[in-house]
Design a protein around this nucleic acid. Structure first.
Lengths: 171, 171
DNA sequence: CTTTGACATGTCAAGGTAGACAGGTAACAC
DNA sequence: GTGTTACCTGTCTACCTTGACATGTCAAAG
């Protein structure tokens, strides 16, 4: 159950509200683990019922601040030591397997649209990478992940250019 | 619905049985779209009920061979032109965001285990890439996907080595 | 002959996820 | 004052996915 543990991981850093957690998923975890508020709120309730987090404050607009409990911290730490599963699902890349069904022009058009997506992602990541890094473990871990994002998008763009050349040459 | 369209894409190439489709998912689509037989058989029944595929033969051991219909072919082609969704979910990489929660030794150990996984994948992909490519569109598309796999794993290994250096230096 | 392993097809329950539906609050600009 | 926007929390249904359960066939090795 990765959503559960991601929430615990984010709460291990500091107390947060469901709304803040939702935004964090959108901003930084989106590329590895998308989650919407409709999943997050019920999960927070379950974590709370299981004693892994606790509501420690409330604020205006019905805000509820949750903090991790010692039991919750044990749970994330244990999860971090379990063998991760390496399955991924990539709906965009799936189409590459079926590129041969398309007319060459359509395949090129597809790759060009993909290129735009990856260029946008790359710019986004590079912009984030320019921000200064405070010397905390948390910031460093985030920076490592971000650097992977930059590498991934750059490599994807190179592959894309190469794939297009292959298709052009075969036409 | 990607499973549905992947099945149609594979059947666009040639008639196949559910068992063969299951093996194809295991062998080549595993890294972008895992699917088990328990998903595939019911989906084939649905595709058949919708007239997108048709059982065109049967063999020993209860074997059922399905072929794509003109309607099914239209459906895949249309799907290939729709805007793909770019969400991915990567349970292994998710842990990188929480690397800071681990002791440096544990983080290094985690990255070392990941390295083994990626080295194994890389070898697998490189071995496949050495096989001769017949000059068909299908084989070329498969080759493009495979090449991405090789690039991805190589980049991941480089990132991994770099990330370990960063952690070592901070220790 | 018998056993093992690959071939081959299916169902079912439990759990995860996406997207729509729903409702209320504070800040700020005009 | 009023409208808009961001804040904030929830539910529900339909669908997808996983893993276990279930069943039977054929070929080849011993």
């Amino acid at each position: 159950m990765s959503l559960r543990h991601s929430l615990l991981g984010l709460l291990a850093e500091q107390p947060r509200t469901g709304y803040e957690l939702t935004r964090l998923f959108d901003e930084s975890l989106l590329n590895v683990w998308p989650a919407s508020h409709s999943q997050i709120y019920p999960e927070l309730a379950r974590l709370s019922a299981d004693g892994l987090i606790r509501q420690t404050a409330s604020g205006s607009r019905g805000k509820k601040v949750y903090s991790i409990t010692p039991g919750g911290l044990d749970e994330v730490m244990a999860w971090l030591k379990t063998e991760p599963d390496h399955s991924t699902r990539n709906p965009a890349f799936l189409r590459v397997f079926f590129l041969w069904l398309m007319e060459p022009e359509d395949a090129i058009a597809f790759l060009e649209r993909e290129e735009l997506e990856h260029e946008a992602k790359l710019s986004e990541f590079e912009a984030k990478a320019e921000l200064p890094v405070r010397d905390t473990s948390r910031e460093w871990a985030f920076r490592l992940a971000l650097d992977w994002g930059v590498r991934y998008e750059r490599e994807m763009l190179e592959w894309n250019a190469w794939a297009r050349r292959v298709i052009e040459e075969r036409r």
